[in-house]
Protein backbone atom coordinates (compact mmCIF):
# COMPACT_ATOMS: atom_id res chain seq x y z
CA UNK A 1 0.00 0.00 0.00
CA UNK A 2 2.10 2.82 -1.27
CA UNK A 3 -0.06 5.86 -1.84
CA UNK A 4 -1.83 7.74 0.88
CA UNK A 5 -5.21 7.28 -0.76
CA UNK A 6 -4.79 3.54 -0.44
CA UNK A 7 -4.44 3.75 3.30
CA UNK A 8 -7.22 1.92 5.05
CA UNK A 9 -9.38 3.57 7.67
CA UNK A 10 -8.55 2.49 11.22
CA UNK A 11 -11.75 0.52 11.73
CA UNK A 12 -11.21 -1.54 8.61
CA UNK A 13 -7.60 -2.18 9.46
CA UNK A 14 -8.47 -3.33 12.96
CA UNK A 15 -11.13 -5.58 11.54
CA UNK A 16 -8.84 -7.17 8.99
CA UNK A 17 -6.08 -7.65 11.55
CA UNK A 18 -8.49 -9.38 13.91
CA UNK A 19 -9.63 -11.55 11.03
CA UNK A 20 -6.08 -12.60 10.19
CA UNK A 21 -5.34 -13.36 13.83
CA UNK A 22 -8.49 -15.47 14.04
CA UNK A 23 -7.51 -17.37 10.92
CA UNK A 24 -4.02 -17.94 12.29
CA UNK A 25 -5.52 -19.43 15.43
CA UNK A 26 -7.80 -21.66 13.40
CA UNK A 27 -4.93 -22.77 11.18
CA UNK A 28 -2.18 -23.29 13.71
CA UNK A 29 -3.82 -23.88 17.08
CA UNK A 30 -4.87 -27.51 16.42
CA UNK A 31 -1.26 -28.43 15.68
CA UNK A 32 0.20 -26.62 18.68
CA UNK A 33 -2.46 -28.14 20.91
CA UNK A 34 -1.74 -31.64 19.68
CA UNK A 35 2.00 -31.12 19.99
CA UNK A 36 1.58 -29.94 23.58
CA UNK A 37 -0.90 -32.67 24.40
CA UNK A 38 1.26 -35.45 22.96
CA UNK A 39 3.51 -35.14 26.01
CA UNK A 40 0.64 -35.76 28.43
CA UNK A 41 -1.18 -38.90 29.52
CA UNK A 42 -4.49 -39.78 27.96
CA UNK A 43 -6.56 -38.63 30.93
CA UNK A 44 -5.10 -35.16 30.50
CA UNK A 45 -5.34 -34.91 26.73
CA UNK A 46 -8.91 -36.15 26.88
CA UNK A 47 -9.88 -34.70 30.19
CA UNK A 48 -13.36 -35.29 31.43
CA UNK A 49 -12.75 -33.46 34.67
CA UNK A 50 -11.28 -30.16 33.54
CA UNK A 51 -10.03 -29.10 30.12
CA UNK A 52 -7.21 -27.13 31.72
CA UNK A 53 -5.60 -30.41 32.70
CA UNK A 54 -4.42 -30.74 29.12
CA UNK A 55 -2.41 -27.56 29.61
CA UNK A 56 -1.09 -28.15 33.10
CA UNK A 57 -0.87 -31.91 32.93
CA UNK A 58 -2.32 -32.60 36.39
CA UNK A 59 -2.72 -36.33 35.86
CA UNK A 60 0.63 -36.57 34.12
CA UNK A 61 2.13 -35.05 37.25
CA UNK A 62 0.50 -37.72 39.39
CA UNK A 63 1.50 -40.61 37.15
CA UNK A 64 4.99 -39.60 36.07
CA UNK A 65 6.09 -36.94 38.52
CA UNK A 66 6.55 -34.33 35.83
CA UNK A 67 4.18 -32.32 33.62
CA UNK A 68 5.69 -33.87 30.52
CA UNK A 69 6.04 -37.51 29.62
CA UNK A 70 7.30 -39.26 26.55
CA UNK A 71 5.40 -42.49 27.15
CA UNK A 72 3.28 -41.83 24.07
CA UNK A 73 6.37 -41.58 21.89
CA UNK A 74 8.01 -44.59 23.50
CA UNK A 75 4.84 -46.60 23.00
CA UNK A 76 4.53 -45.62 19.37
CA UNK A 77 8.17 -45.77 18.32
CA UNK A 78 9.41 -48.71 20.36
CA UNK A 79 6.45 -50.83 21.32
CA UNK A 80 4.44 -50.40 18.12
CA UNK A 81 7.56 -50.10 15.95
CA UNK A 82 6.63 -46.83 14.34
CA UNK A 83 10.27 -46.40 13.30
CA UNK A 84 9.72 -49.12 10.75
CA UNK A 85 6.93 -47.08 9.18
CA UNK A 86 9.14 -44.00 9.19
CA UNK A 87 11.86 -45.93 7.41
CA UNK A 88 9.38 -47.26 4.86
CA UNK A 89 8.01 -43.78 4.24
CA UNK A 90 11.54 -42.49 3.71
CA UNK A 91 12.27 -45.22 1.17
CA UNK A 92 8.96 -44.80 -0.63
CA UNK A 93 9.23 -41.01 -0.78
CA UNK A 94 12.85 -41.00 -1.92
CA UNK A 95 12.36 -43.42 -4.80
CA UNK A 96 8.98 -42.04 -5.82
CA UNK A 97 10.36 -38.52 -6.08
CA UNK A 98 13.56 -39.55 -7.86
CA UNK A 99 11.91 -41.79 -10.41
CA UNK A 100 8.96 -39.57 -11.11
CA UNK A 101 11.18 -36.53 -11.58
CA UNK A 102 13.54 -38.39 -13.90
CA UNK A 103 10.91 -39.70 -16.25
CA UNK A 104 8.70 -36.65 -15.75
CA UNK A 105 11.43 -34.22 -16.80
CA UNK A 106 12.08 -36.15 -20.00
CA UNK A 107 8.39 -36.31 -20.80
CA UNK A 108 7.61 -32.74 -19.81
CA UNK A 109 10.50 -31.44 -21.86
CA UNK A 110 9.40 -33.38 -24.92
CA UNK A 111 5.82 -32.14 -24.54
CA UNK A 112 6.95 -28.54 -24.31
CA UNK A 113 9.19 -28.75 -27.37
CA UNK A 114 6.89 -30.57 -29.75
CA UNK A 115 4.12 -28.74 -31.57
CA UNK A 116 2.30 -31.71 -33.03
CA UNK A 117 -1.30 -32.35 -32.21
CA UNK A 118 -0.67 -35.49 -30.19
CA UNK A 119 1.00 -33.48 -27.43
CA UNK A 120 -2.37 -31.92 -26.75
CA UNK A 121 -4.05 -35.29 -26.52
CA UNK A 122 -1.34 -36.60 -24.22
CA UNK A 123 -1.80 -33.64 -21.91
CA UNK A 124 -5.58 -34.03 -21.91
CA UNK A 125 -5.26 -37.71 -21.09
CA UNK A 126 -2.92 -36.78 -18.26
CA UNK A 127 -5.48 -34.28 -17.00
CA UNK A 128 -8.21 -36.90 -16.96
CA UNK A 129 -5.89 -39.30 -15.14
CA UNK A 130 -5.08 -36.56 -12.65
CA UNK A 131 -8.76 -36.07 -11.89
CA UNK A 132 -9.48 -39.70 -11.11
CA UNK A 133 -9.44 -40.65 -7.44
CA UNK A 134 -6.49 -43.08 -7.01
CA UNK A 135 -8.67 -45.47 -5.04
CA UNK A 136 -10.69 -46.24 -8.18
CA UNK A 137 -7.58 -47.86 -9.67
CA UNK A 138 -6.79 -50.04 -6.68
CA UNK A 139 -9.42 -52.64 -7.58
CA UNK A 140 -7.60 -53.07 -10.87
CA UNK A 141 -4.22 -53.60 -9.20
CA UNK A 142 -5.15 -56.19 -6.63
CA UNK A 143 -5.90 -59.21 -8.80
CA UNK A 144 -2.72 -59.13 -10.95
CA UNK A 145 -0.57 -58.20 -7.97
CA UNK A 146 -1.83 -61.17 -5.98
CA UNK A 147 -1.43 -63.40 -9.00
CA UNK A 148 2.22 -62.45 -9.57
CA UNK A 149 3.11 -62.18 -5.88
CA UNK A 150 3.81 -58.47 -6.15
CA UNK A 151 1.39 -57.43 -3.46
CA UNK A 152 2.58 -55.99 -0.19
CA UNK A 153 6.14 -55.02 -1.09
CA UNK A 154 7.59 -51.53 -1.33
CA UNK A 155 8.80 -51.53 -4.99
CA UNK A 156 5.28 -52.19 -6.26
CA UNK A 157 3.89 -49.31 -4.26
CA UNK A 158 6.70 -47.04 -5.41
CA UNK A 159 5.99 -47.74 -9.06
CA UNK A 160 2.26 -47.28 -8.59
CA UNK A 161 2.82 -43.98 -6.80
CA UNK A 162 5.20 -42.85 -9.56
CA UNK A 163 2.56 -43.60 -12.16
CA UNK A 164 -0.18 -41.83 -10.21
CA UNK A 165 2.19 -38.88 -9.81
CA UNK A 166 3.02 -38.64 -13.49
CA UNK A 167 0.00 -36.68 -14.79
CA UNK A 168 0.56 -33.92 -12.27
CA UNK A 169 4.34 -33.91 -12.74
CA UNK A 170 3.95 -33.74 -16.51
CA UNK A 171 1.61 -30.76 -16.37
CA UNK A 172 3.75 -28.89 -13.95
CA UNK A 173 7.04 -29.50 -15.73
CA UNK A 174 5.45 -28.90 -19.11
CA UNK A 175 4.34 -25.43 -18.12
CA UNK A 176 7.70 -24.84 -16.50
CA UNK A 177 9.71 -25.87 -19.58
CA UNK A 178 7.57 -23.66 -21.76
CA UNK A 179 8.94 -20.69 -19.86
CA UNK A 180 12.50 -21.66 -20.79
CA UNK A 181 13.07 -20.04 -24.19
CA UNK A 182 13.15 -22.48 -27.09
CA UNK A 183 16.03 -20.51 -28.65
CA UNK A 184 18.27 -21.86 -25.92
CA UNK A 185 18.24 -25.48 -27.05
CA UNK A 186 17.70 -24.58 -30.69
CA UNK A 187 20.97 -22.66 -30.78
CA UNK A 188 22.63 -25.65 -29.18
CA UNK A 189 21.24 -27.81 -31.97
CA UNK A 190 22.53 -25.36 -34.56
CA UNK A 191 25.92 -25.84 -32.97
CA UNK A 192 25.61 -29.54 -33.71
CA UNK A 193 24.09 -31.00 -30.56
CA UNK A 194 21.48 -33.74 -30.84
CA UNK A 195 18.19 -33.13 -29.06
CA UNK A 196 19.34 -35.18 -26.11
CA UNK A 197 22.67 -33.41 -25.89
CA UNK A 198 20.87 -30.07 -26.01
CA UNK A 199 18.69 -31.25 -23.17
CA UNK A 200 21.63 -32.61 -21.25
CA UNK A 201 23.99 -29.63 -21.56
CA UNK A 202 21.67 -26.65 -21.97
CA UNK A 203 18.37 -27.39 -20.30
CA UNK A 204 19.40 -29.43 -17.26
CA UNK A 205 21.60 -26.66 -15.82
CA UNK A 206 18.73 -24.15 -15.88
CA UNK A 207 15.79 -26.35 -14.95
CA UNK A 208 16.40 -26.87 -11.22
CA UNK A 209 13.97 -24.34 -9.75
CA UNK A 210 11.05 -25.94 -11.57
CA UNK A 211 12.23 -29.45 -10.80
CA UNK A 212 12.59 -28.71 -7.11
CA UNK A 213 9.09 -27.25 -6.94
CA UNK A 214 7.63 -30.24 -8.76
CA UNK A 215 9.66 -32.57 -6.57
CA UNK A 216 8.18 -31.02 -3.45
CA UNK A 217 4.68 -31.76 -4.65
CA UNK A 218 5.58 -35.30 -5.67
CA UNK A 219 7.02 -35.76 -2.22
CA UNK A 220 3.85 -34.49 -0.57
CA UNK A 221 1.73 -36.80 -2.67
CA UNK A 222 3.79 -39.85 -1.77
CA UNK A 223 4.10 -38.82 1.87
CA UNK A 224 0.41 -38.10 2.35
CA UNK A 225 -1.04 -40.95 0.36
CA UNK A 226 -3.40 -43.19 2.23
CA UNK A 227 -5.65 -44.87 -0.32
CA UNK A 228 -2.92 -46.65 -2.27
CA UNK A 229 -0.43 -47.40 0.48
CA UNK A 230 -3.04 -48.82 2.82
CA UNK A 231 -4.37 -51.17 0.16
CA UNK A 232 -1.12 -52.26 -1.45
CA UNK A 233 1.27 -52.68 1.48
CA UNK A 234 1.38 -55.61 3.85
CA UNK A 235 1.32 -54.91 7.56
CA UNK A 236 5.08 -54.92 8.11
CA UNK A 237 5.76 -52.72 5.10
CA UNK A 238 3.25 -50.02 5.97
CA UNK A 239 4.19 -46.38 5.65
CA UNK A 240 3.36 -43.80 8.29
CA UNK A 241 -0.16 -42.75 7.29
CA UNK A 242 -1.68 -46.26 7.04
CA UNK A 243 0.24 -47.19 10.17
CA UNK A 244 -1.43 -44.37 12.06
CA UNK A 245 -4.78 -45.48 10.68
CA UNK A 246 -4.11 -49.00 11.96
CA UNK A 247 -3.28 -47.58 15.40
CA UNK A 248 -6.82 -46.29 15.52
CA UNK A 249 -8.31 -49.71 15.02
CA UNK A 250 -6.18 -51.60 17.51
CA UNK A 251 -4.93 -49.22 20.18
CA UNK A 252 -7.98 -47.09 20.72
CA UNK A 253 -9.63 -50.01 22.41
CA UNK A 254 -6.60 -50.65 24.57
CA UNK A 255 -6.61 -47.07 25.77
CA UNK A 256 -3.44 -46.18 23.95
CA UNK A 257 -4.71 -43.24 21.96
CA UNK A 258 -1.61 -41.37 23.02
CA UNK A 259 0.46 -43.65 20.76
CA UNK A 260 -1.53 -42.41 17.82
CA UNK A 261 -1.24 -38.81 19.00
CA UNK A 262 2.53 -39.14 19.31
CA UNK A 263 2.71 -40.80 15.88
CA UNK A 264 0.66 -38.01 14.34
CA UNK A 265 3.00 -35.41 15.79
CA UNK A 266 6.01 -37.38 14.55
CA UNK A 267 4.55 -37.54 11.06
CA UNK A 268 3.71 -33.84 10.99
CA UNK A 269 7.13 -32.63 12.11
CA UNK A 270 8.92 -33.29 8.78
CA UNK A 271 6.20 -31.43 6.91
CA UNK A 272 6.56 -28.52 9.28
CA UNK A 273 10.28 -28.33 8.51
CA UNK A 274 9.60 -28.74 4.81
CA UNK A 275 7.26 -25.75 4.75
CA UNK A 276 9.75 -23.73 6.74
CA UNK A 277 12.50 -24.21 4.19
CA UNK A 278 10.55 -24.40 0.96
CA UNK A 279 7.69 -21.98 1.56
CA UNK A 280 8.62 -19.91 -1.47
CA UNK A 281 8.74 -22.91 -3.80
CA UNK A 282 5.47 -24.31 -2.51
CA UNK A 283 3.71 -20.99 -3.00
CA UNK A 284 5.13 -20.58 -6.49
CA UNK A 285 4.13 -24.14 -7.34
CA UNK A 286 0.57 -23.61 -6.17
CA UNK A 287 0.21 -20.44 -8.19
CA UNK A 288 2.05 -21.63 -11.28
CA UNK A 289 -0.88 -23.43 -12.81
CA UNK A 290 -3.18 -20.60 -11.91
CA UNK A 291 -1.11 -17.79 -13.38
CA UNK A 292 -0.82 -19.71 -16.59
CA UNK A 293 -4.61 -19.68 -16.73
Amino acid sequence: MSSKAMKQPVALRTFSTIFVVLWLIVAAFPFLWTLWGSFKVELDFFSKADWRNALTGARTMVEHGSAFTSTGYEGAWVQEEFWRAVLNTAIVCFFTVTISLTIGTLGGYALSRSSYRYTFWLLITALIFRAMPPITLVAGYLLPFFEWNLWGILPTTIIVLVAINQPFTLWMLHSFFQKIPKELDESAKVDGCTQFQAFRHVIIPVMWPGVITTGLFSFLLAYNDFAVTSMLLSKENQTMVPKIASFLGTTQTEGNVMFAVAAVVSATAPLFILVMFFQRQIVSGLTQGAVKG
Binding site: K48, Y223, F226, V241, L271, I282
Partner: peptide
Protein backbone atom coordinates in the same frame (compact mmCIF):
# COMPACT_ATOMS: atom_id res chain seq x y z
CA UNK B 1 1.63 -17.61 4.93
CA UNK B 2 3.76 -20.14 6.78
CA UNK B 3 1.08 -20.97 9.31
CA UNK B 4 -1.66 -20.81 6.72
CA UNK B 5 -0.02 -23.52 4.66
CA UNK B 6 -0.07 -26.04 7.50
CA UNK B 7 -3.68 -27.28 7.27
CA UNK B 8 -3.27 -27.87 3.58
CA UNK B 9 0.12 -29.54 3.63
CA UNK B 10 -0.52 -32.19 6.29
CA UNK B 11 -1.99 -35.49 5.17
CA UNK B 12 -5.78 -35.32 5.19
CA UNK B 13 -5.90 -38.27 7.55
CA UNK B 14 -3.58 -36.58 10.04
CA UNK B 15 -5.35 -33.25 9.75
CA UNK B 16 -8.72 -34.81 10.39
CA UNK B 17 -7.39 -36.80 13.34
CA UNK B 18 -5.98 -33.66 14.92
CA UNK B 19 -9.37 -31.96 14.65
CA UNK B 20 -11.19 -35.12 15.66
CA UNK B 21 -9.33 -35.38 18.94
CA UNK B 22 -10.11 -31.77 19.72
CA UNK B 23 -13.82 -32.03 19.08
CA UNK B 24 -14.10 -35.31 20.96
CA UNK B 25 -16.55 -34.81 23.80
CA UNK B 26 -13.57 -34.99 26.17
CA UNK B 27 -11.37 -32.80 23.98
CA UNK B 28 -10.93 -29.09 24.28
Amino acid sequence: IFFSLLPMIVSPLIGSLVLFWMIDSRGV
